[in-house]
């Protein structure tokens, strides 16, 4: 048993090293941002561990910052929408994670973009237990992210920079551009921006998110045929 674990850890750890730097830095930025937004030190750390979906955590900081309106239902709907891509990850990992026994629950809970991409593409040597390999990749990535958040939350006590909140806009811009460069059809992205701008003009900054999400879902459903053809 011990040997199985050691072998799996030794195979998994090197695959997560490139993710470590990114998660520590971005996690720290998120922690500092949360403290600057007026959240107590423990909140960003608990959120990093419990939600474990980077971009959604930035949005949550915003939804709980000073002056924000208490809206758990909005947070629930938004998290489904923002994380809808996980549906796709899950469908890809159905067979691979089915064989992993009790670890399966944790693997699914911790399936962030980075853990998915490593686990989905890894060539696991034959003498390594794949279940434990997936487990260590997922666990290490989560440790990096929570550690980054904790470091940032502590630094945030002493560091108040005006304008640091732009880090969230920058992160989402990068994710949006990255997705644009990868996707085969830009209709979904265009619908997202246009629907949001339209609803922002009509409903104003405080009430445009839910109408936007409904409009996006409606547009994607109405234009499903042409979009789906181009996505193939």
């Amino acid at each position: 048993m011990k040997q199985t674990l050691t072998r799996a850890f030794k195979a998994a750890f090197p695959k997560t090293v490139p993710i470590m730097t990114g998660f520590l830095f971005l996690g720290a930025a998120y922690g500092i941002y949360a403290r600057n937004a007026g959240l107590p030190p423990a909140v960003p750390i608990i959120m990093a561990a419990a939600v474990f979906a980077g971009s959604m955590e930035f949005v949550l900081v915003d939804m709980m910052s000073a002056g924000a309106v208490f809206d758990p239902l909005g947070a629930f709907i938004m998290s489904i929408m923002v994380n809808a891509r996980h549906l796709f990850y899950g469908i890809s990992m159905l067979d691979k994670y089915k064989k992993c026994g009790k670890k399966r629950c944790y693997l699914i809970f911790g399936m962030c973009d980075e853990s998915f991409s490593v686990n989905c593409t890894a060539d696991i040597p034959e003498d390594v237990d794949s279940g434990w390999f997936y487990f260590f990749v997922t666990l290490l990535n989560q440790i990096y992210w929570v550690a980054g958040a904790a470091i940032g939350s502590l630094i945030g006590n002493f560091l108040a920079v005006e304008g640091l909140d732009f880090v969230m806009t920058a992160l989402l811009t990068v994710l949006f551009v990255e997705n644009l460069l990868k996707e085969k059809c830009h209709a979904g992205s265009a619908i997202g921006v246009c629907a949001a701008v339209l609803c922002l003009v009509i409903f104003g900054a405080d009430g445009f998110m839910i109408p936007s999400m409904l409009l996006i879902l409606l547009a994607l459903t109405v234009f499903r045929k042409p979009i789906e053809e181009r996505l193939q």
Partner: peptide
């Protein structure tokens, strides 16, 4: 869903088309 019960095409489609739309919405949110 499982081996004998594949995900509905509509869900698979949303899994592909929603990420771009959600990111676009979030930029406007920012």
């Amino acid at each position: 869903f499982g081996r004998d019960k594949p995900a509905p095409k509509y869900i698979q489609y949303l899994g592909k088309a929603l990420p771009g739309a959600a990111l676009g919405l979030l930029i406007v949110y920012c």
